[in-house]
Design a protein around this nucleic acid. Structure first.
Length: 957
RNA sequence: GCCGGGAUGGUGGAAUUGGUAGACACGCAAGACUUAAAAUCUUGUGUCCAUUAGGACGUGCGGGUUCAAGUCCCGCUCCUGGUACCA
């Protein structure tokens, strides 16, 4: 059978929409509130985006079948800058982006024409993504949909940010950003040529030397080396500038003077000074030592301040420059007395590591390229393994990696040091062509995530929360420890203005942290019950925080008390969030902020209950990227292969946190699996079930076990495993059952198969909802599978005796087949000997009980056997013990437990009645069963004595 | 660099608390069916040695703990996510 996926999917999707299956309002049932991070609509969805949403949808559908009233809503995150950059590029006729829109995303020309306006881009992809979500069968309550720039949402964000400010979570300070001097705007990846992210190196510092009335600032990444300074380097060919910087007189290069303009300092220019005029003089360092100023051509005016401090003991470049310099100096010159100063002790290096490494690598002069390598190697080694020595005063014996920060703090305190952030990956160019600089924004607004008390509350929340998979918990812990102030407003982009400072827009990762609460309100905004103007501060305070009272809220919002009460009930019913799904890339930001903001705003009982994190999707081993290369648009994939096969392929490709490698072969495999399942369902009928035979009891028990396992897996969001069990593992049980039924020539099993498959199909419904509703219909069941009850797992329905007896039968058949394979005998007669020795059985069960307890060492088992008077004679049969241990060792924990639980049964009777049919059909000869103690036993080769419980001896002639 | 996560056959990946490593799927090979091919079905498939029986080795590398290590500990190598105005 070949399925027309789109036809089936449309049929059922329409059915769901007509009966408003996913429109969820408060009722008397217990609720689950499942949310996913909403998408940013600047491109169509591809398979990779589909993963998180599909996982969440399966989760939602599962809970719905479990009897919960499940709310699964969706919004669209318009906040931010990417569409601004896109619009700019489109307006400029950027070929790359236009090609991408036309050829990869297949956006119609009419739409592209409108894309010069950022909102139109978002609107277009919003609809595109929404259509994809509908086509994927996501069970979303679309009545609650919103974008983050609608007035109602903006009111909500204003309330949120005001509340945070009043709770003392927002502070003002300075912050370095990448900046375009031409546009007077911060630049991000989307604003630069080549889409490079301007990276700011905040670990770069400026150290001040005193030069007469002037300050002589040099930059360094290693402030601790101040103790090892022997001289300063100045380029003799450069003309430097004299500046007044906040009441200090500085000498810096022209390039540095330009950069300083953006550092929030008051600067006036006082004229030039030639490098040559400074050389040969002395500057004083932090402790008043006279430091000679020497010439060096390698000093680049564009780097740092254009002035360099020389630490020849530990910096290979400085060492080599000093060597080169001394060569040109007369023998008696005082400069010949300049010697490197050793300040760091590093294992593997002597007093002057810079000298050693230069000699090791054979560096010949200061323009030698090997100096880069030498610097890198030594820098790292000294950082990780080095210790400051006695020349470093109070910092003697500090490890470099800790000492550096202490030295920095100490120098900063005495005003000898300040920050000098630089662009790590300079030069970065803005799209306008201007080279970007670092700008210090001094009136920046921050969320104070560094606040210890706040962190502690977040930790409490995490401690109580369910985190799936659990091994990501440590990462959250690290993130909370490491978080500090984070800018929460920016100067451009779509979004909501800061209520108290309208020059700023609430940053996109700060306006998306507690919006799940807004889903309970948006329904009323969308249907016109309330307008944005009604959403006042007192209104939100009353509904979300239970502050004030209904009268106050009604007065302020101009709404009736009834409406407010209904809305408050809606919020109280659905909140808190029961599960939040997201990709792993959001752990360090969104998900952590989500928790931090909840604990800052809401009372404890409204804190989130669970976070589920999934890995990304790879395509043929490579990450799917927006650079428009290897993406598969979701809607195209649905059209070509069907939504259900895509859903299953996404889920079955990897466990939750693993990166999933998506490939089309698996989609094809899944399609054929679903096709044969649908076919099977068309054949089965709800016949009455007669008297149960051994294999019927077994397969019914196995299906109960399947229900138990699948339910447990889904609870832990181990969806790959659950799906695997439903589709594949259980298949092998069914084929064994088919073999047994066929061997007996039975025709009366349709009712049993119907029952089993109904449960199996129902469990598949959250995963492949469309085709399963079709299967459900084919089975002749009432209603929809997606609205049916999740199959109940009942431990009492598991017949452990039938499981172990069937295992015995399978094992015996297997053993016979193995012997036949090895011996290549063409069997004429097969004889089975069953154990009947009571003592052997007692010992067997004793060993079983020991092994279920976790022990399986021969010595331990033997000791325990001997200790028990009932089995102490076992010491005479070590060979038997060893074999039994081996037998049991190869069985799963569950089987062992079941064997132990169930009372022993009559092996002989069972094998006699069941082995005949299957033996005949498998091997084509009669299989005769004897008990070891039977008087009429046929045992020409004396095999019978080898029989063990659950391991009959076998004779083949 | 720092903070996380990871490395298992030809491939994707199982092995959940230390207890048969390689489940399951793909691929490949042989066979059946077919004029042929595709599809389907059956069988085989970690490596090496061995005609067989069987044996040895084997989870990135080097050590260690344990009766037992893919799993725990120490030291490396490589890959990967994040690294703060990207959503």
């Amino acid at each position: 059978m070949t399925i027309n996926w789109n036809e089936i999917e449309t049929k059922w999707r329409n059915r769901w929409i007509e009966s408003k299956d996913f429109e969820t309002s408060p009722n008397e049932k217990p609720k689950k509130f499942i949310t996913v991070a909403y998408p940013y609509p600047n491109s169509p969805q591809h398979i990779g985006h589909g993963r998180t949403y599909t996982l969440a949808d399966v989760h939602a559908r599962y809970y719905r079948m479990k009897g919960y009233n499940v709310l699964f809503p969706m919004g669209f995150h318009y906040t931010g800058t990417p569409v601004l950059g896109m619009a700019k590029r489109i307006q400029a006729g950027g070929k790359k982006i236009l090609d991408g829109l036309r050829n990869v995303y297949h956006v119609p020309e009419d739409a592209i024409k409108t894309f010069v306006e950022p909102i139109k881009i978002a609107d277009y992809f919003h609809e595109e993504i929404k259509s994809g979500m509908i086509e994927m069968g996501y069970s979303i309550d679309w009545r609650r949909e919103f974008t983050t720039i609608v007035p109602g949402y903006q009111k909500f964000i204003e309330w949120q940010i005001t509340t945070l400010k009043e709770n003392g979570k927002i502070i003002q300070g300075s912050h370095p950003v990448g900046w375009c001097p031409n546009d007077s705007n911060p630049v991000s990846q989307h604003d630069t040529m080549g889409d490079v992210e301007p990276k700011i190196d905040d670990k770069n510092f400026l150290v001040k030397f005193v030069f007469g009335e002037f300050i002589f600032p040099v930059t360094t990444l290693r402030p601790e080396t101040i103790f090892g300074v022997t001289n300063l380097w100045v380029n003799p060919n450069v003309t430097y500038k004299k500046l007044t910087v906040d009441n200090e007189k500085w000498i810096v290069s022209k390039e540095c003077a330009y950069k300083l303009q953006f550092f929030d300092k008051e600067i006036t220019e006082d004229g030039d000074i030639a490098g040559g005029d400074i050389i040969g003089k002395y500057a004083k360092n932090h402790d008043g030592r006279d430091i000679p100023i020497l010439p060096a051509d390698f000093v680049e005016p564009g780097m740092g301040t254009g002035l360099v401090m020389s630490v020849p003991g530990h910096a290979p470049k400085d060492y080599q420059a000093l060597v080169d310099f001394k060569k040109d100096q007369p023998l008696g010159s005082e400069y010949q007395l300049i010697k490197p100063i050793s300040i760091i002790t590093t294992p593997g290096y002597g007093e002057f590591p810079a000298k050693e490494i230069c000699e090791k690598l054979g560096v010949t002069n200061q323009s030698d390229e090997k100096l880069e390598e030498a610097t890198k190697e030594l820098y790292l080694k000294e950082f990780t393994d080095g210790k400051l020595n006695e020349r470093c005063g109070d910092f003697n014996n500090e490890k470099v990696q800790f000492g550096r920060d202490k030295v920095r703090a100490w120098l900063a305190e005495s005003k000898h040091l300040e920050k000098f952030p630089v662009l790590e990956n300079a030069p970065v160019h803005c799209r306008c062509g201007t080279e970007c600089v670092v700008k210090i924004l001094n009136n920046q607004w921050f969320l104070n995530y560094g606040d210890e008390e706040w962190k502690e509350q977040a930790r409490n929340c995490f401690d109580e929360m369910n985190i799936l998979p659990s091994n990501i918990r440590t990462e959250f812990k690290e993130v909370i420890d490491w978080l500090h102030e984070r800018a929460c407003a920016r100067q451009q982009g779509l979004g909501t203005k800061l209520p108290w400072d309208k020059d700023w827009i609430v940053e996109s990762l700060s306006d998306s942290v507690i919006y799940m609460a807004y889903y309970t309100i948006s329904r009323f905004v969308n249907d016109g019950t309330v307008n944005a103007e009604n959403l006042t501060r007192e209104f939100f305070d009353y509904i979300l925080l239970d502050k004030g009272d209904v009268t106050l809220a009604a007065d302020s919002s101009k709404l009736t008390e009834d409406v407010i009460t209904i809305m408050k009930k809606e919020f109280q019913y659905f909140y808190p969030v029961d599960s939040r799904h997201s990709g792993r890339d959001l752990v360090q930001n969104h998900l952590s902020f989500f928790v931090l903001n909840h604990v800052a705003i809401f009372e404890r009982k409204l804190w989130p209950q669970e976070i589920v994190v999934n890995g990304s999707i790879m395509m043929d081993g490579a990450k799917m990227s927006k650079s428009m290369g290897n993406i598969i648009p979701l809607r195209a994939a649905i059209r070509d292969h069907g939504a259900d096969p895509i859903r299953l392929a996404i889920i079955s490709s990897a466990e939750l946190l693993q990166d999933a490698d998506f490939n089309m072969e698996s989609v094809i495999g899944i399609q054929s699996k679903l096709e044969s399942l649908l076919e099977e369902c068309s054949r089965l009928k709800n016949d009455t079930i007669g008297t149960l035979e051994a294999e019927d009891k077994w397969i019914l028990s196995k299906s109960q076990i399947l229900i138990g396992m699948v339910t447990e897996s889904i609870e832990k969001m181990r969806l790959r495993e659950a799906l695997h069990d439903i589709l594949f593992s259980f298949e092998s049980d069914l084929s064994w059952y088919a073999k047994r039924v066929q061997a007996k020539g039975r025709e009366n099993v349709s009712g049993i198969l119907y029952k089993i498959n109904s449960a199996r199909i129902a469990m598949l419904s959250p995963f492949a909802p469309h085709v399963v509703d079709e299967m459900w219909e084919k089975l002749g069941n009432e209603g929809l599978a997606s609205k049916s009850q999740w199959p109940a797992y009942c431990i009492d329905d598991v017949d452990s005796t039938s499981i172990q007896s069937e295992e015995l039968l399978k094992g015996t058949i297997n053993d016979i087949a193995n012997i036949l394979k090895v011996t290549k005998i063409n069997p004429k007669k097969i004889v089975i000997y069953v154990n009947s020795d009571e003592f052997k059985l007692t010992v067997y069960r004793k060993i079983l009980s020991i092994m279920v307890g976790g022990q399986n060492n021969m010595g331990t088992v033997m000791k325990e056997l001997i200790a028990d008077p009932e089995t102490s004679n076992a010491k005479k049969m070590p060979d038997y013990i060893q074999k039994v241990i081996k037998d049991l060792h190869s069985e799963s924990e569950e089987i062992k437990k079941m064997k132990l639980e169930s009372n022993s049964f009559n092996e002989k009777e069972f094998l006699k009645s069941e082995l005949a049919s299957i033996g005949k059909s498998e091997f084509g000869v009669e299989v005769i069963v004897y008990s070891e103690s039977d008087s009429d036993i046929y045992d020409p080769k004396g095999k019978a004595r080898h029989a063990r419980p659950f391991k009959p001896a076998i004779l083949i002639e």
